[in-house]
Simulated assay, not measured.
Amino acid sequence: MTVALEAHIEELRRELNCCDPAERAQIQAELEQAYAELEVIVAELEGRVSSEPPF
């Protein structure tokens, strides 16, 4: 999953470099969401957070 997410991040970064101003905010928001998802996955793999519910 992380490989696909990292590929998606790279694609968004490339799009961000050559997009028109109208699309820039949307692509930036998608990029920030993808970075956040990747951070959660990495934190779970490293044991910093648990993916199980607290109850």
Rank of each mutant, 00 (worst) to 15 (best):
A29C: 03
L5M: 12
L31W: 09
E39K: 09
P54C: 11
V42G: 09
S51E: 01
C18A: 15
I41H: 06
A29L: 02
L38S: 00
E6D: 13
A43P: 02
V42T: 14
S51C: 01
A43K: 05
Y35H: 10
S51F: 00
E46T: 02
E39H: 00
A4I: 06
E32G: 05
E11H: 06
L38Y: 01
N17F: 04
E52C: 01
E30V: 02
A34K: 04
V42P: 07
A22T: 10
P21S: 08
C19L: 12
E30M: 02
F55L: 15
L31S: 13
R14Y: 03
V40Y: 11
S51D: 07
Q26C: 06
V42M: 12
L12N: 12
E52L: 05
A25N: 14
V42I: 15
A34Y: 03
A43N: 04
S51A: 10
C18P: 12
E11N: 14
L12W: 06
C19F: 11
R48V: 03
H8I: 13
A22I: 10
M1G: 13
I41P: 04
R24S: 08
E10G: 14
A29S: 10
C18N: 15
A4W: 05
E30Y: 01
C18Q: 15
E37V: 02
E44I: 11
Y35D: 12
R48T: 03
